[in-house]
Amino acid sequence: MTLAAFAYQRPRSLAEAVEAMAEAPDARWLSGGMSLLPMMKLELAAPPALLDLSGVEDLRGIRDEGDFLHIGAMTRHVELARDPAVRRDAHLASLAAERIGDPQVRNRGTVGGSLAHADPAADLPAALLALDAEVEAVSARGRRALSVQDLLLGPMMTALEPDELIVAIRIPKHTGHRQAYTKVPHPASGYAVVGVAVAIHEEGGRVRQAAIAVTGVALKAFRAARAEAVLAGQAVDQEVLAEAAGLVCDGQDVLGDVYASAAYRRQLAQVVTRRTLEGLR
């Protein structure tokens, strides 16, 4: 449980960070270190160099950009959980951030780090998927935007190039939408056995827009498209909710492990989805 030797650099600006990465292509970005450092201690990762992003001011801060919230990638989970603007306009992100790990992890871990790590049972990906968020990534080749949907490829796999860095997350405002995140944590790891993020927009007693995203259940967090479709346009009652919940894992290859088999996970996902939807009424 001790770290092997590695080189360490702490760039002071985004330009400096990008340049440092260009010069040390085998380096890894270090943000909160809540996943990377344990992996290094367990000898599951052995990067020769770490580029610590904690000194890069450009990556911090939460800004209101009209229809969007701009969340700097180095925003700590605890900040996301408590920020008044996020709580008002993208409440789901706060709710998910509150359920991450333990206080130490929430104080250190970052939004960008969590997304880039892409743990299939992490909390934030579900919330950000449901909120239709996108990430802004930067490398020596320039800047690009991609949706969280496109970012997540699989377990610990993203569409980011090795030298690319998430600099911010942009969340379309969901002010007034009903939002909830329900998590069933694994008793040992604290990761989601099932995590369900829901954002519902109703007008005139009918669902105008329904977003349901699930983590912990498949190789990556996913949107439950068929369940969403059941809700869309409906005046929601118990039966509709139950029908939608029953379809939450539709089309997914549900994971099974020593703690929870695929059959049980599916059941849990359905029950949790139904109860989360019921709780929003």
Partner: peptide, 15 residues
């Protein structure tokens, strides 16, 4: 197969 504290669930105060 339960060879770490990520798999082997010790009781936590919040339980």
């Amino acid at each position: 197969v339960t060879g770490s504290l990520m798999d082997y669930a010790l009781p936590k105060a919040r339980f």
